[in-house]
Simulated scan of single mutants.
Amino acid sequence: MAAFGHTFPFYAGPKPTFPMDTTLAIIITIFLTALLTFIIILPGIRGKTRLFWLFRVVTSLFIGAVILAVNFSSEWSVGQVSTNTSYKAFSSQWISADVGLHVGLGGVNITLTGTPVQQLNETINYNEEFTWRLGENYAEAYARALEKGLPDPVLYLAEKFTLTSPCGLHGQYRLAGHYTSALLWVAFLCWLLANVMLSMPVLVYGCHMLLATGIFQLSGLIFFSMATPLTPPCPLRMGTAMLHFHRGPAFWITLSTGLLCVLLGLAMVVAHRMKPHRLKAFFNQSVGENPGLEWNPEEGGLLSPRYRSTAESPEPQDIPLSEASSQACCKEQPRMSDPDP
C-alpha cells in the first residue's frame, strides 16, 4: 500500500451505498399493491357505501403499514452535522463532510457523505449499518468494520454503541429496541384482529381491538422515551463540530398513528353505545339481519338470542284440513268402549 501512496488502513473495494432499506421497500410495495387493488374494484360499489368503504380501507392500510414500517425503520433517533474531520487513521488529511447518525429499534446506521463527494481522489459516500437484533452480534459487526478499514467518523460513532464503551449507549438502545419492537408486534396483531372483527357482526370487539392497537403503540413510545436519553451521556465530537441527535420521523409518525387509533376506537365505542344502527350502517351491516338475534349492549355487544314471551308471540293460525284428511284423522282415533253395566 505504501508503494501506491495509500495510508494505512486502506478500505479496499467499492464503497457500499444503500439508497433505501429493502425491507421498508417491500412493506410499502405490499400495502400500495393492496390499496391499488381495492381502488380498482371501488367503482363496483354504489351509493354512500363507496365513500365509507374507501375511508375504512385507506385508514386501515395506513395504520398497518405504519406499524410494520417503523418496526424496521432506523429513524427513531437521528442526528446530522456538517464538519471538517479526519478521514483515515494515521493521516493528517482532513475532509469536509456531512455525518449522519440514525438509530433504530434493531441497530444503528451511520452515513458519511463528502461535500463535495469527490475528495482526496476518492468517492466519499458511506452508509454502514450495525445491528443488535436477536441472533446478531454487534461486536462482530464492529470488528469486521475495523478489518475493512472504514473511515474514522464511521468507526468513531460505531464505537460509541459497543458493549464495552463507557458511553453506555448500547445497553440503553438495545433494551429499548427489543421491548418497543415487541409492543409494536402486539399492536400489529391487535390491528389484524380489529380488521377481522369489524367485518363481522361483533363491532364492539373490533372497536376494542382498534383501541388496544393505539394503546400498545403509545406504550412502546413511552418505554422508548424512558429508556433512551435525548442527550447522550458522552459528547459526540466530529472534528470541529458536536453531533446532537433527537427523535426521528419514525417516533413522531408512530405517536400520531397511536393517537389516531385511540381516537377512532373511542369514537366507535361511543357510537355503539348511543347509535348502534348508524355504526352498523357505516360498516355496511344490515340492521334487519338475523331477526331472531338482537344486539344486547349490556353484554358488550354480543349477539345473544332473545326469546319472545307468550304475549309477544303471534297467535297460532288454524290451518283448514281437507275433507279426506279429516276422515282419516277420525278413523285413526280409537273408539271408547262402553262401561260394563
Rank of each mutant, 00 (worst) to 15 (best):
M1T: 12
F4C: 08
T7Y: 01
T7H: 10
F10L: 10
F10G: 00
A12F: 07
P14G: 05
P16I: 04
A25Q: 08
I28Y: 02
F31V: 03
L32Y: 04
L32D: 12
T33F: 06
T33I: 06
A34I: 15
F38W: 10
I41P: 00
L42P: 00
G44W: 09
G44Q: 10
L51G: 03
S60F: 13
I67P: 04
I67R: 05
A69I: 05
V70P: 00
N71Q: 09
F72R: 15
F72A: 14
S73K: 11
E75S: 14
E75R: 15
S77M: 12
V81T: 12
K88E: 08
K88P: 00
A89Q: 10
F90D: 15
Q93I: 14
Q93P: 00
G104M: 03
G107V: 02
N109G: 01
T111M: 07
T111V: 02
P116M: 15
V117H: 06
N121P: 00
T123D: 12
I124K: 03
Y126N: 08
N127A: 08
F130D: 04
W132V: 09
L134T: 13
E136L: 09
A143L: 06
A145S: 10
L146A: 02
D152N: 05
D152M: 13
L155N: 03
Y156A: 11
L157A: 04
F161N: 01
T162G: 03
L163F: 02
L163T: 10
L169D: 01
Q172D: 05
Y173R: 14
L175K: 08
H178F: 05
A182D: 11
A182S: 11
A182Q: 09
V186L: 13
F188E: 03
W191T: 01
A194V: 01
V196F: 11
L198N: 07
M200Q: 12
C207W: 05
C207S: 15
L211A: 07
A212D: 02
I215M: 13
F223V: 15
F224R: 12
A227K: 12
P232G: 05
C234I: 08
L236V: 05
T240E: 12
A241M: 12
A241W: 01
M242G: 06
L243C: 06
F245E: 03
A250M: 01
A250I: 03
W252D: 00
S256I: 09
L260F: 14
C261A: 15
C261E: 03
L263E: 04
L266M: 11
A267T: 09
A267C: 05
V270G: 04
K275I: 02
R278M: 07
K280F: 09
F282I: 15
F283A: 02
N284V: 13
V287F: 01
E289T: 10
E289F: 06
E294D: 01
N296V: 07
N296S: 04
G300R: 09
L303P: 00
S304D: 00
R306D: 00
Y307S: 10
A311S: 14
E312Q: 13
Q317S: 05
I319W: 08
P320T: 06
A324F: 02
K331D: 06
Q333C: 06
P334W: 11
P334F: 09
S337R: 11
P341F: 04
